[in-house]
Design a protein around this nucleic acid. Structure first.
Lengths: 154, 154
DNA sequence: GTAGGGCCTCAAGTAATGTTGAGGTCAAGA
DNA sequence: TCTTGACCTCAACATTACTTGAGGCCCTAC
């Protein structure tokens, strides 16, 4: 494997980042980064001292992982969502966009679940559903958990 | 402890539900219900055979728990969100509404995180942030993870 | 030359959120 | 009467997502 040194001249002085630098810049713990890498979510080269060297474009991946985590997207889904974004080179604009379409579906679904819950908590509760009759929340089988038909909003 | 029988006359024939009925109506596994109860998220009485008897209003709680789970809200937060909703009697309209205000804050925050991520994936990536300069996603410390100021949308 | 810092590997531990299994009670139906 | 089904308790296991610890390498600064 080619070995890259931190100061290697390619385009800038810190084109390659150590694991500590990536951690500092993304807020992800070093241990988490190692974990993500083993898991295949990110990748790195090694320098002549066997230390991780991350290309800058990996920062974006890590940032996306961190945010996704916050909204409860499991790492497996994340790996799938990243499937077509190359790890070994800066993804092209197009590649990010293609991947982002898949993301958006997931995100939208999630956002809609939240919005529905918000609606339930105000509209539904506010409108008398407390009676527990025909409330979408309590509609069994359906119960906001599926995609069934039935009363949705209002 | 008072013991309630399923058929006890109070208002209807099934004012009290067995754990299996609650499970069937909410979609939550029996084991999950027991877990929620031990955790303090729901509560029940026992009948003369030591079996759980759930009041109907518990269905709503379970339904809310199920939905919240789907959007990644941890049970601890959930317990806090339910703090002022009584377990031992049907919550009043007012009580639900007061609790729902807390919920809404949480939900909104979560929704905004998602919306930001959506924006990053389209707007930001689409607008040249690929250059990695001054991108909210990569702004350390800030990085969508905090509430700091800085470039947010566009 | 030695102390510290940053990095490495590998194994074990932790927290959250349940599920599964063993062993038992009880009531109703064939 | 015997079996089946729903329920009980308690303990152990599973999964996800990491963190912590032990033991070691190498460079830089004092």
């Amino acid at each position: 494997m080619t070995s890259y040194r931190p100061g290697e001249v390619r385009a800038g002085p810190d084109d390659w980042l150590s694991i500590g630098e990536v951690s500092a810049r993304t807020g992800a713990a070093v241990s988490a980064l190692r974990f993500y890498e083993e898991f295949g979510l990110i990748a790195s080269e090694r320098d002549d001292r066997n230390q991780h060297r991350y290309p800058r474009h990996m920062l974006r991946r890590v940032a996306l992982i961190s945010v996704a985590k916050r909204i409860g997207i499991p790492l497996l889904d994340l790996r799938e969502a990243f499937a077509d974004v190359p790890l070994d080179r800066p993804p092209s604009h197009q590649e990010w966009q293609r991947a982002s379409r898949g993301w958006r579906r997931r995100l939208e679904e999630r956002r809609q679940t939240i919005e529905r819950l918000e609606a339930e908590l105000t509209g539904c509760i506010g409108c008398g559903c407390l009676s527990m009759k025909a409330c979408a929340l309590l509609n069994p089988g359906d119960a906001l958990a599926g995609d069934g038909v039935g009363p949705r909003r209002l």
